[in-house]
Design a protein around this nucleic acid. Sequence first.
DNA 1: GCATTTACAGAACGTTTGCAATGTAAATGT
DNA 2: ACATTTACATTGCAAACGTTCTGTAAATGC
Lengths: 205, 205
Amino acid sequence: MATPSRRRAAPVRARRSHAERTAETRAKVMAAVVASIASVGFQRTTAAEITRRAGVSWGAVQHHFGDKDGILDAVLADSFERFAQRLAGVELDGLDLDARVATFVDGAWEHFGSPHYRCTFEILLNHPGAEGDAWQGMLEAWNEVWTRFFPAPHLARREVVALQLYAISVLSGLATARALGGRPARLLDGPLALLCEALVQNLEA
Amino acid sequence: MATPSRRRAAPVRARRSHAERTAETRAKVMAAVVASIASVGFQRTTAAEITRRAGVSWGAVQHHFGDKDGILDAVLADSFERFAQRLAGVELDGLDLDARVATFVDGAWEHFGSPHYRCTFEILLNHPGAEGDAWQGMLEAWNEVWTRFFPAPHLARREVVALQLYAISVLSGLATARALGGRPARLLDGPLALLCEALVQNLEA
DNA sequence: GCATTTACAGAACGTTTGCAATGTAAATGT
DNA sequence: ACATTTACATTGCAAACGTTCTGTAAATGC
């Protein structure tokens, strides 16, 4: 006997529960979408390209997401989730404004600079369906995190909105600038420092 | 006789020279592309959609631009041209830094906020061909305008690049933020003022 | 164990895409 | 005036796209 073990000779494929299978396949597909959009853009992220990168058939995708819009929606939701999660767990007690701003910008850039935001961005830009709503949802998530970091009751709502929009613009713009021109990552430290500067100046009482 | 005039009764179509025809048709096609991308996005800007909006046949497009990439390249070039032109004619003598910054940001936003930049942006994002080169070209045009507005010999090259990238990011990010969420235009005045503030602070000797 | 449900594979289909090919009217040069 | 070139219209097509449909293996519940 080539395989001397008694019951299961060569467990080429381990037994997996339905829940495990579902979680793994969904994760593979969504990761494939993110990777594809990040590297070849939205337009060339076709159904065939997704199945190729994920290593699953279209049948699997259809089973878990329904159609292509279903995958895109799931990826959007996942991306927001990741962002909120990343900045929700940070401990802020005892940090002064400088430190808070630095922490905030750091964490936010981890998200905006990641393929996940690139992905979110292109989906929102091209996907006609959940256009307004999804972006609005992102702004709310952003606002929630922001108010936790910077309570700032001395500022008018109008000024806060302007500051938020400003910060989002810098981060989003920086991310797309890097995506368009293949520029070295260290060039981005300067602009990020400028953003911190601007935030500190406009947030302190 | 229903049309009593002597020679040409109803000149439904005036006689146009070849040069005029070419100029008009090219302009109509390029305007159609800009309008289409600005309103329905890159993906849904198909060949048929372009011909529909331009009111010309595909044969005409083919004749003047070759293929779809040809139109896109032409639109890119035209967009850069418009930007450079807009800021090149401004007289700067006798303006102090504040005024220069305000003028610069104003003019730059006229471009970044226009459908032409939205168009440039989406083409660069989705068009695989001239990706790096075209963006590099835009940066050069940007740099040329910038150095005319802000000679600033006291700053290190590194700092200047950071400031430039920062300004581009704010403007581009603001434009895309407006494109994604249909937000009121007046909300953008705040962030633009913040950009001016940041530029003045970092440019003065 | 066995029926049922769930997870996934793969081919087939109808539509849309960009583009080539061909034809025609208008303008130009001589 | 007429031949030639330029500007534009129309049709047809092959490839690619998203999706539907059918089939099969694996896991679950009884």
